[in-house]
């Protein structure tokens, strides 16, 4: 469904991602883990072209794109098949919760206001925020804002939703509600690529875990393979460090 081949990205001559290959099947949850600065965020941003890779190929929803020669139209096209949930939520500050969810449906997908409203209500209910539809982002807790942003992503019915550390900006007591919403999204059959430091969540929810290190895919496999049975030295080192810090 989503297929990345030979993706390369550099910032001002510094290689950040090197020859990344990634396959994600329809309805799969793929989690990216790895040390800080390894390029997990950058990889997600490449998939919806917030960063433009130097080279590589992506197929998504039956279409192929060549990153090295991608044009404006293809860029919009690819972005419209993906949705991003940001670490800092990035809700539109001038819009209420429901307007945040409606806007792209009306502006980008040209749906009628009524249609967009109904779809948005449905998605806001799904993340448990039907009581907050008229609140501005500023009036919502971090957890609520993140759930609105999940509803916003769902509402455009993308092929894949990209989550970049969706809970790491949240107070600990708000993490649970957001994880619950993500789980809900995963269960509904949505294809997901998730970057997270919530290791036990990753283990529970993922169909595939990708361990990245220094801009490369170091290892990938089923969650228990990576978390329990890995014999990759770098994976073990990362997980050990992680568990030691968590204690």
């Amino acid at each position: 469904m989503l297929n990345l081949r030979n993706l390369n990205l550099s910032f001002h001559g510094n290689k950040v991602l090197e020859d990344i290959d990634l396959e994600v099947k329809k309805g799969e949850v793929v989690t990216l883990i790895g040390p800080s600065g390894t390029g997990k965020t950058s990889l997600l941003r490449c998939i919806n072209l917030l960063e433009k890779p130097d080279s590589g190929f992506i197929s998504l929803g039956g279409l192929d794109y060549d990153f090295s020669s991608i044009d404006k139209k293809e860029t919009l096209n690819l972005r419209r098949k993906t949705a991003m949930v940001f670490q800092q939520y990035n809700l539109f500050k001038n819009k209420t919760a429901i307007e945040n969810v409606m806007d792209a449906q009306m502006v980008v997908q040209k749906k009628s206001k009524k249609e967009a409203y109904e779809k948005s209500m449905e998605e806001l209910k799904r993340v448990g925020l039907e009581a907050k539809v008229d609140a501005y982002p500023n009036q919502l807790s971090g957890g609520q804002q993140q759930r609105v942003s999940i509803a916003r992503a769902l509402a455009v019915e993308p092929e894949v939703i990209l989550f970049d550390e969706p809970t790491s900006a949240l107070d600990p007591e708000l993490v649970g509600e957001v994880l619950k919403s993500i789980e809900e999204v995963a269960k509904s059959g949505m294809t997901i690529i998730l970057v997270t430091h919530e290791m036990s969540f990753a283990q529970d929810i993922s169909d595939k875990v990708v361990f990245m290190d220094k801009g490369q895919v170091a290892e990938s496999g089923r969650p228990e393979q990576i978390f329990k049975e890995s014999d990759n030295a770098r994976t073990q080192q990362f997980l050990n460090k992680f568990y030691a810090a968590a204690q």
Binding site: A83, F86, A104, V108
Partner: peptide, 11 residues
């Protein structure tokens, strides 16, 4: 982030 949110949705 406001720019990026809009861009990521294909505005």
């Amino acid at each position: 982030g406001q720019h990026e949110a809009a861009e990521s949705l294909g505005y």
